[in-house]
Design a binder for these strands. Sequence first.
DNA 1: TATATATCGATAAAAATATATCGAAAGGAG
DNA 2: CTCCTTTCGATATATTTTTATCGATATATA
Lengths: 212, 212
Amino acid sequence: MNKQVSKRTLSRLPVYLSLLQEKYREGMEYISATTIANLLGLNHVQVRKDLSCASTSGRPKVGYATDVLIKELQVFLDYNNTKNAVIVGAGDLGKALLGYNGFTSYGLNIVAAFDNNPDLAGTSVKNKPIFAMEKLPRVMENMDVHIGIITTPAHTAQAIADLLVKNGVMAIWNFAPTSLKVPASVIVQNENMATSLAVLSTKLNEKMENDK
Amino acid sequence: MNKQVSKRTLSRLPVYLSLLQEKYREGMEYISATTIANLLGLNHVQVRKDLSCASTSGRPKVGYATDVLIKELQVFLDYNNTKNAVIVGAGDLGKALLGYNGFTSYGLNIVAAFDNNPDLAGTSVKNKPIFAMEKLPRVMENMDVHIGIITTPAHTAQAIADLLVKNGVMAIWNFAPTSLKVPASVIVQNENMATSLAVLSTKLNEKMENDK
DNA sequence: TATATATCGATAAAAATATATCGAAAGGAG
DNA sequence: CTCCTTTCGATATATTTTTATCGATATATA
């Protein structure tokens, strides 16, 4: 357990976790890799292999105790160890993320948003404040923030990234549809919705072609 | 060109497209796969191979004419052929997506949102209406909608998916953190933010471990 | 005009990822 | 108690995806 975990595996673990939590609430005390695989439309060997990097609790013939597996995944994903983050860009998307409380259960605590629109400065979303850009350095330092979330338009994203890096950010979650240049030590995770949309749209086209 | 395009390739094409549009605005008339690769931090052979499924305009020593390549990608991704979609769940995320006009340039036109909260029925976001759930069948039929976007909480997502399928949806873009059971003919694209977050968070942990 | 170089597109090699197979263990059935 | 079935975990195979290599071609330069 805990060797080199592939990126693909890593991105499936939260999916397992959320399924497990759902099934646990429904009263399922034990669950097998085969069951998980069927529910998610995956291969059972893949599920078992994925889980093996976070869990040692699987038992032949029985499967995994749901609650134990949930805890193992939470530990592995470090969801108990909450990290602070700030959002830059309090447009619709920024506000949506700011107001969404669900991230805390994934170990992410969004403490504030920043925007250069003076009308927004001083307002808040669900008690989470929106500040003027000037306040960013102070807030990041005081709140020990090392994760930045960029939800600005593409053309300002690079400047924002530079600013975040200057203020000690170690990881950037980038929702702007552009690629960022940052020092190698800074982690960037791009969340490009156009990408998903392209996959969806192309599959749909193929389907419509075939249906003709 | 146009053989079996892998999902990975497909998801990179919109990224290339948006870079090309940016560079074209900046006056770059020709661009090579090597240049694109360097700008995006990818391998140049991969870029060339990806582009080959949508383009035939590459010339040795010259590269690609930026405007031609942009058009080729748009045609391949079918961005000119706009498709209508509806959103179900007009919470923060739903509203953000409803109000975001950027999707039209990706061939997606969101015509309306639906929510079971009666306070929201009759309101609108940037002239895009929010209706009560009862109106869904009529709107979907009248507006020829075949794409549904689910932004409800996880526990209602399956019922919404069933409703959408019943009303003729062919593709679902699912933002709810749960997996949906739909007929095999219906395409589902899951947009799971926890997944991205897990990757980011784990990379960050590794980094912090190494920095110690 | 000949030569050098950047680039493409195709094919081959390497790496990553997914799937299949197999023995061992746990529990239930006869 | 023995046999049968389910399941795990490990190893082996297959597939997919990425990266490297190579010849051909277009352009620039001497």
